[in-house]
């Protein structure tokens, strides 16, 4: 079944690296979207929800943490959307907090294609 993906990161370079790593992991998506912060992502998701969101934590305007809360509390259209955080932040407190708020997983930077495969494959079926 074809899937759609959105990458949310304020760094265009990191969005490209994540996209490349996703491809290297062997996972395929029919549609891919990008957003530079949480607010931009939410605007796009309102009209075109995706199956999977890979999202940075620290971003200007709206952080990844705020974005997760908003999607889970206000965006009924994204009920089935899985959200995986991708960040250099790695404290257990942060990970537990964002999972409690509705994220479905956490990948720490630096990452590898194998790590993406491990974390994303459960959401591909």
């Amino acid at each position: 079944m074809s899937k759609s993906l959105m990458i949310v990161d304020d760094s265009a370079t990191m969005r490209k690296i994540i996209m490349r790593t996703v491809r290297m992991s062997g996972l395929e998506f029919e549609r891919t979207e990008e957003a530079g912060n949480g607010a931009e992502a939410i605007e796009k998701l309102k009209t075109a929800p995706v199956d999977l969101v890979l999202c940075d934590v620290n971003m200007p305007e709206m952080s990844g943490l705020e974005m997760v809360k908003k999607i889970r509390t206000e965006l009924k259209i994204c009920e089935g959307t899985k959200i995986i955080m991708v960040s250099t932040e790695s404290s257990q407190e942060l990970i537990d907090g964002v999972i409690a708020d509705g994220a479905n997983g956490f990948i720490t930077k630096p990452f590898t294609p194998e790590k993406f495969q491990e974390k994303l494959t459960p959401f591909m079926n």
């Binding site: 265009a12 370079t13 990191m14 250099t88 790695s90």
Partner: peptide, 23 residues
């Protein structure tokens, strides 16, 4: 802009590694 963005990401990731090592 792309060059600066890449260097910003490098320093961000190195900081993440330092942070986790001294947490």
């Amino acid at each position: 802009e792309g060059t600066c963005d890449a260097i910003g990401e490098i320093v961000n990731m190195i900081m993440g590694g330092v942070k986790s090592r001294i947490l």
